[in-house]
């Protein structure tokens, strides 16, 4: 099973995303994005185990704006 660290723009989106994922059977938690891209900052990650594409699709379907998926998954999880 893959691991994903989904980037979102605010802690509220992170909480909503985590809530959506948990309700759909995923294990998820929130962390501050420790590796923001240049020009980014104040972002949060939803750390979750599962298929990355399915996870992102589920989040988007539920109104969570996804900014990307971090490659630093190990640090997150």
């Amino acid at each position: 099973m893959g691991k994903a660290a989904v980037k979102v723009g605010s802690v509220t989106y992170a909480a909503k995303g985590k809530d959506v994922l948990i309700k759909n059977g995923y294990k998820a938690h929130i962390t501050r994005d420790p590796y923001p891209e240049k020009g980014e900052g104040c972002g949060y990650l939803i750390c979750v185990e599962g298929d990355c594409k399915s996870i992102v699709a589920l989040l988007k379907k539920n109104g969570v704006k996804v900014y990307g998926v971090s490659t630093n998954v190990i640090d997150c999880l």
């Binding site: 802690v11 509220t12 909480a15 909503k16 809530d19 929130i30």
Partner: peptide
């Protein structure tokens, strides 16, 4: 993060 979760 706990405070943010409570607010949410």
């Amino acid at each position: 993060l706990a405070a943010a979760q409570k607010v949410y």
